[in-house]
Amino acid sequence: MPEAGRVPVGVDPSKPNAARVFNYLLGGKDNYEVDQMVAHRMLAVDPATRTLAWFSRQFLLHGVRMAAEQGIRQFIDIGAGIPITPDVHEVAREIEPAARVVSIDYDPVVHAHANALLAGTPGVTSMLADVRAPVEMIVRLRSDHAIDFSQPVAVLIVGVLHFVMDDEDPYGIIARFRDVMAPGSLLVYTQAGSTTAPEFMARTGMDTDNSPAQVAYRTQEQAARFLDGFEVVGPGVTPIQQWLGDDLPETKLVLFGGIGRKPEDP
């Protein structure tokens, strides 16, 4: 579908929104009936989808802790969604009290919630921007939000890349950020996997086709391509359960998680 048709230009309560569906799955209240309906149809196919949403959140916060423990003090949370406690800035500041966080989303409703919930927190700002315009985003991060790309930064892009269609150049987006990130920076991301159960893909496809919540499922090899130019950290690009512990249940929706470190210049 052409990009313009998938970019939200205002509030449309008749179409599902990925951030609001995720908010509902995590027990939040900032969602519409259409988001709840989509979530319940996902849960009807696999009740463990709610558990997977929690796994995804824990993977994000695991990446935040890893970055902060390595001394990173700048965090760019792309597709941040509606703030949920514990949030990125809360976890980062347990380790690095001076951490700066920019919370980014392209949905105006999500942005409004973030503005209201994060207002008055020094060093934490929200930004309305579309990941599919990475050059503009990087310019604004430098000029409006005081991100210093000459110093290490953690780029968090969890629950986002599978909403970027192939013709919207997801690999180019990551490459743009990689090229400006300082050595020692971290990339933390997830990608919906093509090994997801066919019935789950069919159900979500019917619910989200031609909406901003439409999903592009990718193979494990395709998901690993996002780490081109990075040093692979941890277990590599694997289902996120493998990042979090032993014997966690499998889910019909497969989310691959990966973390990469920008290497020192040769």
Rank of each mutant, 00 (worst) to 15 (best):
T121L: 15
L52T: 04
V38F: 11
G120M: 09
Y32T: 05
A39Y: 08
S211Y: 01
A202Y: 02
Q74V: 04
D35I: 05
D246G: 01
Q214G: 05
V233R: 13
E96M: 12
H111Q: 11
V124T: 02
D207S: 12
A146V: 10
I259L: 08
L52W: 11
V232I: 14
R142Y: 00
P2A: 02
P134K: 10
M37D: 14
V135I: 14
N115L: 14
P152G: 03
F149Y: 04
L141G: 06
P122K: 01
R65E: 15
P108H: 09
S56M: 14
T49R: 11
P2T: 07
A4H: 15
V164L: 06
T238F: 00
S211M: 01
R65P: 00
P239R: 01
Q242H: 14
V109A: 12
T49K: 04
G63W: 10
S14A: 13
D144G: 14
L161A: 04
G5W: 10
F177M: 05
S150Q: 13
A39P: 03
L60V: 03
I157G: 03
L186C: 02
E199P: 00
Y189M: 08
E94A: 12
P170W: 09
L43S: 14
S56A: 14
P47A: 05
G159T: 04
F177A: 01
M181N: 06
P239A: 03
G120H: 05
P8W: 05
K29S: 12
P122N: 10
P97M: 02
H62R: 15
A146W: 00
L227S: 03
